[in-house]
Design a protein around this nucleic acid. Structure first.
Lengths: 130, 130
DNA sequence: TCGATTATTCGACATATATCGAAGTATACC
DNA sequence: GGTATACTTCGATATATGTCGAATAATCGA
């Protein structure tokens, strides 16, 4: 229970850490926007782009981009799937929603006093899908 | 413009960084909940607690707590005000709302394709109030 | 099979972060 | 003034992070 709660806070912190680096945040933003509905996008499927595209314009070495994307992936914020030579990345909408829910619970003025509920949003279980 | 956009991403990243450490996140959560309406709280004023209270139960040295709270403060997530011997901390609801707004824009499924708007939420200007 | 493209892993390195204890500052109370 | 309480600043130190380039792996096309 309390142990569980601990794990939730750790997960939450891990997500924030993944977004805490400007380069990574930029990658994440690009992923979210570059392929959103209505935008022309190299990949037809919504919210998806390959590693190379995401890293463009950041002025970083390929290995560094790869490292950053791995961080986002490990935090559960994005999913990766091989497609030929490329590896497609897409936002994990669930994780994003949960993260957003945590902040929205208060910030926006909606029901506070609900830590029990708010921190029990189960962030992506670290053991599956990676 | 683009320079401005850069600064916004930096600010956003700085906020995430402040919340990326489990100890700091715990402090932040405590601050948000311990004194929310309806809860009995050492400080009557909603969402406020002194440095010492926030750091309790974390098993950290006072200097470390101080350091963490300073980080949260620098990121603009909380305000501090001297009150006698104590220093009262309260969440900066504006910053929280903006942070939350950034994630909520997508995550929750509300209008995507609005990066222009979403990243132009002006996060607290680093130069005032600290 | 060979070369091109795309991405990851590895080792090195500089910088940043988390942490402590000791010393310093500010305020309150006697 | 002197002492207690609350917090911050400073210096030290161990660990984590961001970055690169070189080497490796996976896939495609000729």
């Amino acid at each position: 229970m309390s142990n569980n709660r601990n794990k939730e806070v750790e997960n939450l912190a891990a997500c924030f850490k993944a977004l805490s680096n400007p380069h990574r945040l930029r990658i994440f933003i690009k992923l979210i926007t570059c392929c959103s509905p209505g935008t022309s996008c190299p990949v037809k499927d919504g919210m998806s782009a390959c590693v190379g595209e995401l890293g463009k314009d950041l002025g970083l070495a390929a290995s560094t981009i790869s490292h950053h994307i791995k961080e986002l992936h490990t935090a559960g914020l994005l999913r990766m799937e091989r497609s030929g030579q490329r590896i497609e990345c897409r936002v994990d909408v669930d994780a994003l929603r949960k993260l957003s829910g945590f902040l929205a619970g208060w910030g926006i003025g909606i029901s506070p006093a609900t830590l029990d509920h708010a921190t029990s949003i189960e962030l992506k279980d670290q053991t599956n899908g990676r």
